[in-house]
Design a protein around this nucleic acid. Sequence first.
RNA 1: GGGGUGGUAGUUAAGUUGGUUAUAACGCCGGCCUGUCACGCCGGAGGCCGAGGGUUCAAGUCCCUUCCACCCCGCCA
Length: 617
Amino acid sequence: MDFVEPRKDSNPADVPDDASVALDQLGSWKKTADCSSLGAQNIGDEVVLMGWVQRRRDHGGLIFVDLRDREGLTQVVFDPQISPDAHEHAGVLRSEFVMAVKGKVRARPEGMANPKLPTGEIEVAVTELRVLNSSKTPPFHIEDDVEASENIRLKYRYLDLRRPKLFKNLLLRHKVAQLSRGYLNDLGFIEVETPVLTRSTPEGARDYLVPSRVNSGKFYALPQSPQLFKQLLMVSGFERYYQIVKCFRDEDLRADRQPEFTQIDLEMSFISEQDVYDLIEGWIIRVFGELAGIPLSPGFPRMTYADAMDRYGSDKPDTRFELPLADVTDIVAQSEFRVFRQAVERGGIVKALRVPDGKDMSRKDLDDLIEFVKIFGAQGMAWIKIQPDGWQSPITKFLQESVQKGLAQRLGIRTGDVIFFVADQRKVVNDALGNLRVRLGQQLGMIDPDRYNFLWVTDFPLVEWDHDEKRYTAVHHPFTAPLQADMDVLEEQPQKVRSRAYDLVLNGTEIGGGSIRIHQRETQRRVFNMLGISDEEAQEKFGFLLEALQYGAPPHGGVAFGLDRLVMLLSKSPSIRDVIAFPKTQKATCLMTSAPSDADVNQLLELCIKVEGDRRK
RNA sequence: GGGGUGGUAGUUAAGUUGGUUAUAACGCCGGCCUGUCACGCCGGAGGCCGAGGGUUCAAGUCCCUUCCACCCCGCCA
């Protein structure tokens, strides 16, 4: 027995400290049950339980302790009539002390059952107590109703993870990973690990760089995804590959984005889009059915990118509610409202969103919504209230009768509606109204939280124009196959070329995406050229891929899913941090380990790296 | 890089037009208590008001700078 000074304190607040409690050894005791499993059927059993003190209720003559382990809570009782020693020893117990008890399961007295606890019918009458460790007073209570701020929780992450909710999230994550492995294994997929230390590639996100000691001055990059490796495995003839793998992107964080995250990544040879859809739907149906009790049917709906943008202003529309956008550019182009006319003259568009029964919106509500769309780049937003006695709006006087008639017809306007208009470049209009649509859907209670609407979004454009870099960039990535039908305009009208990429969207969140890849060298060369990547640059950066494509690369394609986001949705968590054991803050630091940190001078010397300080200052 | 919210006891929060000793709840410590389960009762301790500077007779409160957490835009599939 380690014996250190007993607690004799007058008061130091910090007192429950290792140094003040006599501790026992675990000895040969083994847990015989967990804290959720005992019930009336166990009455009379001799058991050994181990765990943490959730709460102690000391009645002087009788001490109750709620004992917690990862499975649940069980009440244990220290009764001097059963064991005076144990009762006396229990006096030292405090929150989060680690204890082992031996005792007998007994029914609680008449009327004393606790219906709130699964084990509330019984209690364990302790014959012997071993205090395995003490605990400082924790900075927050270990319970599901979080009452601590995020920075405290992140600093003491190991305590936060004791909360049942977080534990259950990580357990669910484990189950998703295991089910996914089983599903893919059964279908002939082979899990292959790909390098974490790899080379930087242009395009896409910023890379995390890792200096090479044995090649001083050179750097590895951490993979943004195993994209090229899995394609090369197809060239190798693996036919079906998967991996549950960490990916790294050095970009700013969001509630659903961490710089390191996990993908369920797979690739198949000799397949087309339909094979991917079938495979993934089968998998999703099992994940949601078996792990969340949510029944789904195969044949998820599909929508082209063009339709999604047109109707919902987003490439990941939430289809749990309608509230569609309508393009009214042609109607208002001739109106006397300058904002509309000028937007059209500058090559922009005008779209409208009709909110049925929006008549109760106050002027303040409308102003709030106008402020909201400004976040997305809109200069402003026009609105019209359709009142029984006519159209009420600051802009009605600029809309001549023909325009009003056209709008009424296209939008199906009815009395009581509110119509919103944004006029700007296409991207701004879709961003603003697409986001407004989602906000109104939430605000007006149009979203059923128990619905799970999956949607395949297809036919993405292959490229988009990058105004900053003055060139086309790949929407998906530069290895995505163009649609065969659009190949003849690849060089002349790149922006018109559709790709064989697809995303799976759930309730407005993209949870996975992929594509059929280019497997012929000549096609890959043409796409690189169109993206402004010269033959020389392609050779230098992707030479190994271009080379490989010349050695009998089979047609192939695949998909990758964000495991974190999937578990986040399954567990209805508000943040991705709630499904990651040790997440980073919005500034990409770890409050527990204080990473990133300064490097040791000797480490830097070995790497031939000189730190010049913050050059942005 | 930009916009927003927050930072006061261990924790969560209150703190008026600047004004005496900065409140409350929970937690913590001590005492009492044999059926509690948010146990109860009595007593007690606990503060760099995120940090730095300024205005003022006087700053938790006003001004400037800065740090941290969160949400969003940009960025990122």
